[in-house]
Design a protein around this nucleic acid. Sequence first.
RNA 1: GCUGGAGUAGCUCAGCAGGUAGAGCAGCUGAUUCGUAAUCAGCAGGUCAGGGGUUCGAGUCCCCUCUUCAGCUCCA
Length: 582
Amino acid sequence: MADFPINALRHSASHIMAQAVLRLFPKARTAIGPAIENGFYYDFDVDKPFTAEELEAIEKEMKVIVKERYKIESFDLPRDEACALMKDQPYKLELIDELPEGEPIHFYKHGEFTDLCAGPHVDHTGRVKAFKLLSATGAYWRGDSNRKMLCRIYGTAFDNKEELQAHLEALEEAKKRDHNRLGRELEYFTTVDYIGQGLPILMPKGARVIQLLQRWVEDEEQKRGYLLTKTPMMAKSDLYKISGHWDHYRDGMFIMGDPDDEEAEVFALRPMTCPFQFQVYLSRTRSYRDLPMRFNETSTLFRNESSGEMHGLIRIRQFTISEGHLACRPDQLDKEFEGCVNLASHMLETVGLDEDVSFRFSKWDPQNREKYIGSAEQWEQVQVRMKSILDHMGIVYTEADGEAAFYGPKLDIQIRNVHGKEDTLITIQIDFQLAERFGMEYTDSEGQKQFPYVIHRTSIGCYERTLALLIEKYAGALPVWLAPTQAVVLPITERQHDYAQTLYQRLVDAGFRVELDDRNEKIGFKIREAQVQKVPYMLVVGDKEMEGGQVAVRDRREGDIGTMTVDDFLSRLAQQVESKAK
RNA sequence: GCUGGAGUAGCUCAGCAGGUAGAGCAGCUGAUUCGUAAUCAGCAGGUCAGGGGUUCGAGUCCCCUCUUCAGCUCCA
């Protein structure tokens, strides 16, 4: 039996799905249907979106087509014949129209179904044995929100039933790690409908973890020469007019006051810290000797994301980031940029997310000039500079056009959530324009005024998002140094309650986050609850332990690890916290 | 913002031919004092997301709003 790449199999599955849809819905118009990571989809233009029952019917029809074992054949046509063949398929005609002149146009055919397609495919429909349709959703034609919304069906296909089954089970497992579910269950955060979308309530556990992260990040930044600032959360529109936000980011801001009333004072909540933190630089004249200057701030920002975008703690309207801005001379740019990357890497390694990220070099889009400030020459120049820094550091990255900030290119550190959706966790940006806009200058060694480069960067990114990803990474069981509760004291009977209380107090006095469960429940019941709550250590105390001044220590992951003196346990805990062990 | 699901007790869910709401877990009270994943009994808990409408009567049908989930678009 011939071997086919999994993409060919999935692509063929998508064609078989289109064939089944056309059998059941002859009026449907087909758009595009590629293989994607872990599966495939096909977009259709139909009168009504597919229901769950219709999806089942389509899947059933697909099985019929698989059984019929149609040969999958390719052929080429000249443009006029291709158009004639696809005359009832307007989306295909649009695609044909965009293909380069003079080259043959490829088609694939099986049974009564023919599709415009570059391939590759498997040799016959009987190969597609293990597949499943997953969902039906809306998707814009050509990904353009101004164009028609089509109906997209997602599915997946594998070489065999076992792999398919394993994949479907993995999807179920992933759902259990979802921070949006676990984070609420474990009481890290909640939301309230009359507060509004994207405005989560961080509960004691969530707030504690974020506090721990913030203290650590601020201390680490201090060690690396950063100067902490605290700047206002809102400003008059005048500030944003200087920065360019008023023209380039107004839709994303929460504005207070009527912008159309010339007399009224108009304020806006800050969507970024840059124009505020720049004022520190601007407060006096600066010399080349002052540079580099590194400012950091634990900064709460407000962005008016559109209503469909919010997701748990990952995409919200008010959030707090480890924001920072560095002003430096051109000759310092490489070193400062590297310093930012190294700091971010250190943060990721320490929390254990370093294996899960990828780097993206986000560039401007020369075709979309109104999104950006500055000239094409400036953009090209700074992008070349940034690329050389990245290459020199040996960073492996992908390039993305049109993902730059409006003032400069970015190195984005991307991470995927448990559902595979990618978001930016950390960003390091080179800005060659805002200094000039704000009149940030320094006097160089020749006595000339110069504008510094500004690096905008985060070190661990947005705390809420980081918390979400940590919950997913560790399935709620955070490392000891970050765990909101590090140990729970479990007396077996009432006889040990006084001892348990003393033990609890000793741990609290030593600076640890401890709980005492002195309910008169069975020890097995109490251990189970602590397991569910993902507490790293359970300290069981019965008569034996009380008499010996000891604790029986149970590790959440490893089970019983022995009876030890309280001092031994304290030093064990201290060592783990100190080393930030995972 | 768009398309489609969903919203019943703190949580997971049942109730759907329209006839005034039910289970398990959690909570509380009492009993139990127990050695590693669920001790027993009792009690309490809901303007069925909010508002409007149809009806003698609405959790159930219709409309609007809010929230939430998946996907698309967006993410400076």
